[in-house]
């Protein structure tokens, strides 16, 4: 199917681009680790306090790291004219946009999973919460990319859209933050987390179905 071929071609190209610009792509990851490191320095290295704050700290940092990486989602495409060509493609724009978002998640969301054990170690998160932390990251980081894409599409045409992007996107991230850090918090206390994970899954599915359309409309507005 040509549509699926186009979808895969977008993912392949963006991954290739990320690989060629790998120095740049690692920055949000370093940022993630760095922000987490700042917390013990700011509030003191009390193991109990850090352990209690760990889910929140990790998730706020993940949110900020994603926010930082979002700018690269459409920026270079907008500047070099690739975005125009994508809009002119005969294929459904929403699907192409979804391809961009998937590639963005593979590059910026997935690596967060790899450093999560390190952070858990830093903050003394109980081992029993590790699995839940991973699950929330798997479910919720794509959600962050999907919601964020709408904000980026709205601001990509602006010269200094970065601050505005955070103002638009962070309020929309609130439910993700609440359920994801809430689940890790409960897991650390040995409580069941099925409900939170189900809600995150439901939100992910809804965002997969709903987010590409406003993103496409906003992109068309931005190149106008």
């Amino acid at each position: 199917m040509p549509l699926i071929r186009a979808f895969l071609a977008i993912i392949r190209r963006d991954l290739l681009l990320a690989f060629r610009r790998r120095a740049e792509m690692a920055n949000p990851l370093f940022f993630f680790v760095l922000v987490v490191t700042l917390f013990p320095l700011a509030i003191g290295a009390q193991p109990n306090l850090l352990q209690a704050m760990a889910p929140g700290v990790i998730w706020v940092s993940a949110l900020l790291a994603t926010l930082l990486s979002l700018d690269s989602l459409f920026r270079s495409d907008f500047e070099d004219g690739s975005l125009e060509q994508m809009l002119l493609s005969p294929h459904a724009l929403s699907v192409l946009v979804l391809g961009k978002i998937v590639a963005h998640w593979l590059v910026s969301g997935l690596p967060l999973l790899l450093v999560a054990p390190l952070l858990a170690l830093f903050l003394g998160l109980p081992e029993q919460a590790m699995g839940t932390l991973w699950l929330t990251l798997i479910l919720a980081t794509p959600l962050l990319s999907l919601i964020g894409a709408i904000g980026v599409a709205l601001t990509v045409g602006l010269r200094r859209g970065g601050m505005l992007l955070s103002l638009l996107v962070l309020p929309l991230y609130v439910p993700v933050l609440i359920f994801a850090s809430g689940a890790v918090d409960r897991a650390a206390g040995g409580l069941p987390v099925g409900a939170q994970l189900n809600i995150l899954l439901a939100m992910l599915l809804a965002a997969l179905a709903l987010a590409p359309l406003p993103t496409s409309i906003a992109l068309k507005m931005s190149v106008n």
Binding site: R13, L16, L17, R20, R21, S76, E79, D80, G81, S82, E84, Q85, L88
Partner: peptide, 15 residues
């Protein structure tokens, strides 16, 4: 049926 080449080349310089 339409194709467009604008001011921007629409190519990726790293590729």
């Amino acid at each position: 049926d339409m194709a467009y080449v604008g001011h921007a080349d629409g190519t990726k310089k790293e590729l």
